[in-house]
Design a protein around this nucleic acid. Structure first.
Length: 155
DNA sequence: GCCAACGTTGGC
DNA sequence: GCCAACGTTGGC
């Protein structure tokens, strides 16, 4: 079982939206490095930190689980989709998505500032300057260090 | 709103 | 294949 961090802008899709929906397809990844991780590494059963960027404060809002491994992202060939890619089609899917479901919220959400205080997270990809990857691997020690911030708040 | 850091595009 | 121009991301 691997662990990941997925970024989203809550304005387009938030943790609360995921809780409301119960499950969602994580569509719209249009970066090859992120696509390769989704396609080749992310597996059903993996756990995911859901991170909110482009808001103040930036936070990890909750933990989700991958409930379906990578399959073609058909939004890529939907002209009405904001993620439309004219080069993709059913014969050339190009992009993939996975399905995730909420496991539990982090209450309160863990802020970026809080993460920066943790020595074990000094090398975390999320905290590195210029880090834009929207699908990031999280090392086991990093995962443990993040969850330790909400120890005693298990559901 | 600014700007650094990338990623992509396209002329050559 | 190079690289400048451009677009996007995302923290601040």
């Amino acid at each position: 079982m691997k662990t990941w961090l997925f970024k989203s802008e809550p304005e387009s899709y938030s943790w609360d939206d995921l809780v409301r929906d119960g499950r969602t397809c994580w569509e719209g990844v249009r970066n090859y490095q992120a696509r390769n991780l989704l396609r080749d590494e992310v597996a059903e059963g993996d756990l995911v930190l859901l991170y909110h960027s482009q808001v103040q404060p930036q936070v990890i809002a909750g933990i989700a689980r991958v409930v379906r491994a990578a399959y073609p992202d058909h939004f890529a060939w939907d002209p009405a989709s904001r993620y439309h890619d004219p080069k993709a089609g059913p014969d050339n899917p190009t992009w993939v998505m996975v399905d995730i479901a909420p496991v539990r919220a982090l209450d309160p959400p863990i802020t970026r500032d809080e993460l920066k205080e943790v020595p074990a997270l000094a090398d975390m990809m999320l905290l590195r300057r210029g880090s834009r990857l929207s699908i990031q691997p999280v090392a086991p020690v990093e995962w443990d260090a993040v969850l330790a911030l909400r120890e005693g708040r298990e559901p």
